[in-house]
């Protein structure tokens, strides 16, 4: 459930309502003014970056981009002018407006060229930034709920204990059961980005656990000598391990998404600045 916005704002989200949404209001004003100007403007031919309004919106977009990118440097400095919280607030809201300002600058005309490349990179940067803001807004609560008071250290220690216990309990079973249990409790490597996208290892891990659990259960039906009391501890351990494993996996996913959006945001910002520089030089080279 989303957090209430207001005085009860958690401290890591206070930037969203910095000075009662000062920059949100500024961004909204800029948005409305730009759209009205675009609607009012009657250029020769289709709207584009070469008209008076197009140049105006372009300069505005350029200045905004440079200023927003400068936040990446400013946030690493201790002290300095302006509150960092306020700057982050401006970064988020004005960055979101930038996508409209630049679309209007381009007159919604896109082609296979360096100019559209700059737009595409800007879109990726803004989209990743919006996603990052979303993770900061939504994920901490989900993570806390998922962890249930545990930490990664305690969860992995408990997981290890469960897996050792599973292997021990499986020793009393035939070889095929032991092999399946060992397969199920084999430590899962996450594989980082590829795993984040595909979730392949998680599915594999889940499937192995369920295969082992169902196989152990079929022992009951197949062998008259086996009693429920002999099987139950292994089934319980395997099930608890699977539940805990998925909890750890979810935790890893949350942390991954909360941290990795910046691995897109930052390199793409630098590439955007390069494309933007080329865009400006080229437009005036062939004026």
């Amino acid at each position: 459930m989303p957090m209430e916005v207001g005085d009860s704002q958690p401290i890591h989200l206070a930037f969203l309502m910095w000075r009662r949404g000062f920059y949100a209001k500024i961004a909204l004003t800029v948005l409305i003014v730009c759209i009205l100007l675009y609607a009012w403007d009657r250029p020769t031919g289709p709207a584009n970056g070469g008209t008076a309004l197009g140049y105006g919106l372009g300069v505005m977009g350029l200045v905004l981009t440079a200023w927003l990118a400068w936040f990446g440097i400013r946030r690493r400095r201790y002290g300095g002018a302006g509150s960092l919280e306020g700057l982050l607030s401006a970064h988020v809201y004005l960055g979101s407006v930038l996508i409209v300002v630049v679309s209007l600058h381009a007159g919604f005309r896109f082609h296979w060229n360096v100019h559209t490349l700059a737009f595409a990179l800007m879109f990726v940067v803004i989209a990743s930034g919006m996603f990052g803001t979303y993770t900061f807004w939504r994920f901490p609560e989900l993570m806390t709920r998922n962890r249930g008071g545990m930490t990664l250290t305690t969860m992995t220690a408990e997981l290890a204990a469960l897996e050792v216990r599973c292997t021990q309990l499986a020793l009393a079973f035939p070889d095929d059961v032991l092999a399946l249990v060992q397969d199920a409790v084999e430590p899962a490597r996450t594989g980082q980005l590829a795993e984040l996208i595909s979730g392949r290892r998680q599915k594999q891990m889940r499937r192995r656990s369920l295969v082992a659990i169902s196989h152990v259960q079929t022992q009951l039906a197949d062998r008259a000598a086996v009693t429920p009391a002999e099987i139950l501890p292994l089934v319980q351990n395997l099930t608890q391990r699977l539940v805990l494993m998925e909890r750890i996996y979810r935790d890893w996913r949350f942390r991954m998404l909360m941290l990795q959006w910046r691995s897109v945001h930052m390199p793409m910002t630098v590439a955007l600045l390069m494309a933007l520089l080329i865009h400006v030089v080229v437009v005036f080279y062939d004026w």
Binding site: R262, P267, M274
Partner: peptide, 28 residues
């Protein structure tokens, strides 16, 4: 085993500056 699990579920961040440089050079 617990430490191995911990390591496996640690988020590894890529070298952002390297990627920024590579992407910019490709664009250039």
């Amino acid at each position: 085993l617990g430490q191995l699990h911990f390591a496996n579920f640690t988020v590894a961040l890529p070298n952002v500056r390297l990627w920024a440089s590579v992407l910019s050079c490709i664009v250039l």
